[in-house]
Each structure stands twice: as structure tokens, then as C-alpha cells.
């Protein structure tokens, strides 16, 4: 009798199970909304499965057929997935590089005890503002502003800069620049705030002693701020990169889903969206999604490792 009671008591002291109970909701949600669809996507990628009109074709097992199709040269003479990966990469780089530079500079200014900028709260709110607007609304706004009869063209003509309206949305470089500009405007505030949090987490004493030792601002930045900011920087970099791979709404709305001109602004997710339109092509879309998943995983681990080593 005594013995068993003791045992019960011992059992109830273990609090480990509560830990599990508390994390169960996350795993349930994860399993239903992420893991299960993910497995289904991988499964579907091996099948021919789409809609022709209202008729459902398949599912018919085709092995790696869908993957092979993704790497076929199309009627226009290029491999779509290669071109769209390049598009996505270019669009991300030309938007993200200035974004990191500006955000880093602003974060340094705002956190610098020597500058001690006034009205910080105001500026922080203002630079974060664009992020509150829905990307598609933002894109629609740019579409209207830069159309051939839009205000930008009217201004350019009335100032005498050009004598005929420029078709911004039909020129490769301007479409890409506009997409990059929008992504920049929407995200630099967010990055600034994250980097600021990172910099503020660094012990102020380090900056002070460096200054006392006579190091320049550049030296402080490269030898104190940057190395200690690395974990946050990696986080910001990887999330931005994943966001870049998933770039969709801005170019989709700006080019009406066609990635004009000549598919030079079609991103990988826009390509995916084409499969998921009317034809609900789960097979091809699944194969593309799996490739994207692998690509994201490889890139993330690569970036993580290289930056970590330094």
C-alpha cells in the first residue's frame, strides 16, 4: 500500500508532460495545415491530375513525368523554370540589395547615441507605413500611376522631359525596376526595425570602450556592430530570400498575370499560379512546388552555413 502511494507521488512530480501538452496545439495546427498538405503535394506531383473544362482528368500515376516536363524546352525556345528562376532572382536582388543598404544605414542612424535623432518614433512609423498597404493595392496604384495616360507620364510630358508617353509597363527594365521599387518601399521599414532591435541588443559598453580606444565609426561597424548583429542579419536575410522566392502579388497585379513583356517578369509563383488556374493542374503544380521547396531548403542552409562560418 505504502509503496504504491510513493510511486504515485513520484510520478506526479514530473512536469515534463505539461511541456508536451502545451506544445501540442502547435503540432496539431502544423500537422493539419502544413505537414499534411505538404505530403499531399509531394504525392500529387507523381500524378497526371487536372481539369479539362469541368471534367477531371486522372489521377494517373506518371512517376517523374511531371518533373521531366518542367525541364522541357517550351515553344518559345527556353526552359520556363530556368527563365522564371532567373527572373525571380533578379527581381529579388535588385530590390533587396538597396533595401539592406538603406535599412542598415537607417538602423545605424536611429540607434546611434552620438546622432541622437529626434522624432524617431515618427520616422519609424512613416517608414513602416508602406508595409501596411496590401501588396496588390500598392501594385494597382503603381499600375495606374505609370500607365500611358497616368500622372507620371503627364508630368514628364508637361515638364518637357519626353514628348510622347512612355509605355513603362511594356519595357523590360522599367517593369523590373518598378517591381523592385515596390518591394523595396514595402519592406525596407520592416528590415530597419528588425536590424535596430538587433543593434540595440548589443552591449552599449562595447561601443563606448571602442570609441575611447579611438576607433573610427567604420571600424566600430565592421568589428563590433556587424559581427554581433550576424544572427539577426542572417534571420533577416533568409526571411527576405524566402519572401523573394515566393514573390507573387506585386508582379502578378502589375502585369495582369502575364509577366509582360515576354515573360521577363514572370516569377516562379506566377508560373505555379498558371497551373492552378482554370485547369487545377495539381500534378504539375505539385512538381513545381516540390522543386521550390528543395530550392528554398538548399539556399537557406547554404546562406546559413556560409555566413555562420565567418
Amino acid at each position: 500500500m505504502d509503496k504504491s502511494r510513493k510511486k504515485e507521488k513520484k510520478k506526479s512530480i514530473s512536469y515534463a508532460k505539461w511541456g508536451y501538452y502545451f506544445i501540442i496545439p502547435f503540432f496539431i495546427v502544423y500537422a493539419i495545415f502544413t505537414l499534411y498538405p505538404q505530403i499531399l503535394t509531394i504525392y500529387n506531383s507523381f500524378f497526371e491530375y487536372y481539369r479539362d473544362g469541368l471534367n477531371i482528368i486522372g489521377p494517373r500515376f506518371v512517376g517523374l513525368g511531371n518533373y521531366a516536363k518542367l525541364f522541357e524546352t517550351n515553344t518559345a525556345g527556353y526552359v520556363p523554370i530556368v527563365r522564371y528562376t532567373m527572373n525571380t532572382a533578379i527581381l529579388w536582388v535588385i530590390g533587396a540589395v538597396p533595401q539592406f543598404l538603406v535599412a542598415m544605414l537607417l538602423a545605424l542612424f536611429f540607434t546611434s547615441t552620438r546622432l541622437n535623432i529626434r522624432g524617431q518614433q515618427f520616422f519609424k512609423t512613416v517608414i513602416y507605413m508602406p508595409n501596411l498597404i496590401m501588396a496588390s493595392a500598392f501594385s494597382m496604384l503603381f499600375f495606374t500611376m505609370f500607365s500611358q495616360v497616368g500622372p507620371i507620364n503627364q508630368l514628364l510630358i508637361s515638364w518637357g522631359v519626353v514628348d510622347k508617353a512612355i509605355n513603362f509597363l511594356a519595357i523590360k527594365i522599367s517593369v523590373r525596376s518598378l517591381i523592385a521599387l515596390m518591394n523595396f518601399l514595402m519592406w525596407f521599414g520592416n528590415t530597419t526595425i528588425l536590424l535596430m532591435a538587433g543593434i540595440q541588443g548589443i552591449d552599449e559598453a562595447l561601443f563606448e570602450s571602442a570609441r575611447l580606444d579611438g576607433s573610427s565609426s567604420t571600424q566600430v561597424f565592421f568589428h563590433i556592430t556587424m559581427p554581433l548583429l550576424m544572427p539577426i542579419f542572417i534571420y533577416v536575410f533568409i526571411t527576405s530570400m524566402i519572401g523573394g522566392i515566393q514573390m507573387f502579388d506585386v508582379p502578378q497585379v502589375l502585369t495582369n498575370g502575364k509577366g509582360t513583356p515576354d515573360n521577363t517578369s514572370t516569377t516562379l509563383i506566377m508560373y505555379l499560379n498558371n497551373f492552378l488556374g482554370l485547369s487545377k493542374n495539381y500534378g504539375m503544380a505539385g512538381a513545381l512546388s516540390v522543386l521550390l521547396f528543395i530550392m528554398t531548403a538548399i539556399l537557406s542552409s547554404f546562406v546559413f552555413k556560409t555566413i555562420r562560418k565567418k
Binding site: Y50, D52, I57, N74, T75, D262, N263, G277, S279, M284
Partner: peptide, 14 residues
């Protein structure tokens, strides 16, 4: 024309 065909191929796999 090639781009148009490629577009159709994606939207109408049938």
C-alpha cells in the same frame, strides 16, 4: 506566337 502557345499549354493542359 510561341509565348501564346506556351501560355495555353499551361492553362489548358488538355
Amino acid at each position: 506566337i510561341a509565348n501564346f502557345k506556351d501560355y495555353l499549354k499551361n492553362v489548358y493542359p488538355g
